[in-house]
Structures are given as C-alpha cells and as structure tokens.
Amino acid sequence: MLEIKNLHVTVDGKEILKGIDLSIGAGEVHAIMGPNGSGKSTLSYVLAGRDGYEVTQGSILFKGEDLTAKNVEERAAAGIFLALQYPIEVPGVTTMTFLKTAVNAIRVARGEGELDAVRFLKLVREKAKPLNVTDEMLKRALNVGFSGGEKKRAEILQMALLDPSLCVLDETDSGLDIDALKVVSDGVNMLRSPERSMIVITHYQRLLDHIVPDRVHVLSGGRIVKSGDKELALELEKSGYADYAADAA
C-alpha cells in the first residue's frame, strides 16, 4: 500500500525528516510514536502533500505510484486521508454543504459521478449515526464552535464518507476525554478493513488500547529509531522517550 524509502524532508530550509523507511501493507495499522518535535506531524503533512514540505531525497510509493508527483487534492482522490490534530474552523460553510462538496469532488475525480441530494443524505445519516454526529451538528458551520470531541468525530465522519485506502490519524487523541476517545476509536475501528491501511500518530499509548496496531514505530530526530509490535507501545509508556531522544541526538 505505502512504501517510503530513505525519505528526507526539509521545512523552511531545515531538515526535519532524515531518512525514513516505512512499509505498510494493505489492511495494516501502524502506530508512529515519538517525542514532540520528532517529525511525526511533518510525516503526516508530507503524505498529504502540503505546500512547504520539500522532499529532498528518497521516495514515497502509494499503490505503486509516485505520490510526490501528485498535488493535495489528487492524493485525496487517490485515497489518502489525513485526520488533523486541530481541524480547521471554516465559518460560513455548513458541515453538510462541505461534506457534499468534498464527497462529490472525490467521486468525480474517481470517475464515480456525483451523488444526488437524496442518496447523499442517506449516506451521511448512515455514517453519522454510529459517530454520534447529529443533524444539528451537520447544520452548523464546519468545526465552528465544535468541542474537541465533536471536531474529531467530524473528522472521522469525513474519513468514513471519503472512503480512503490510507488513513493518517495525526494525534487524534489530543484534547479528548475518555468517553470521546472511545467513540472516536470505535469509529476508526469500524473502518478497519483488509483493503484499508492506517497510520496512527500519537504521543501517548492510551489511544493504542483502543486502536490496536499491527506495528509500532518510534520516531525520534527525524528517523525511525525502533520498530516492534504493540508491546513496544507499552514499554514506551513505562520508560518514556528519553532513551530514544538521546539515540537520535
């Protein structure tokens, strides 16, 4: 699904990622953990194609194609979805309008044709219900005045609607209380399938109690310094990142 080789990335002339190798198979969930400033968010933005993140060396292949040649919206159409740590508030655009615009943009790009209003509404209701996203929320401006939990649920709803094949969840647990974490994690778990891979970026192990990963990687100083199975996350919870930070320096 995703093949990253020797990836070097600079932001504002500063090298943040210093040679990442990562291979994710179809249906696999990989967790990326690491201290602040280790490059976790940079990795997520590079995958999504954000401006200002320059790949200076290495390659990213997504479903066998060079991802770096595609712009942001082409990557979205190809099946990459980034759930943001801090979803952006967009005043004046209702969540429903935004979802319809996004779903149809992606469908058109995938050659599936737009959904009419009735079919779209049916689809939204079906996906929104388990995430506890109410009609009232859908009528509000996108993310405006949403609580932390509502924002993350709205992100997962977008993910469910856009039907991506690689989900990148950037610190999805930040700002969530235990109950909200459960709802969001359940939503993510429902989207797990043999065709869909996930990268779960998190600082803390607790999210991984809910979304159980196949592999765990420790990112520090712009490199993956250790990989293991889910036990690695538990180990980190005990020992902290101090050892790895020292390794990277």
Binding site: L82, I88, A102
Partner: peptide, 17 residues
C-alpha cells in the same frame, strides 16, 4: 490546505472560503 485534503481543487477551495 484542509479543504484540498478533502478533495476540493485549489480554486474551489478558495472560492468556498
């Protein structure tokens, strides 16, 4: 960026905003 990452092309994203 947020809107483009949801599939809107740049002009549509700007127009919407």
């Amino acid at each position: 960026f947020y809107l483009r990452s949801r599939g809107l092309d740049e002009a549509s994203a700007r127009q919407l905003l």
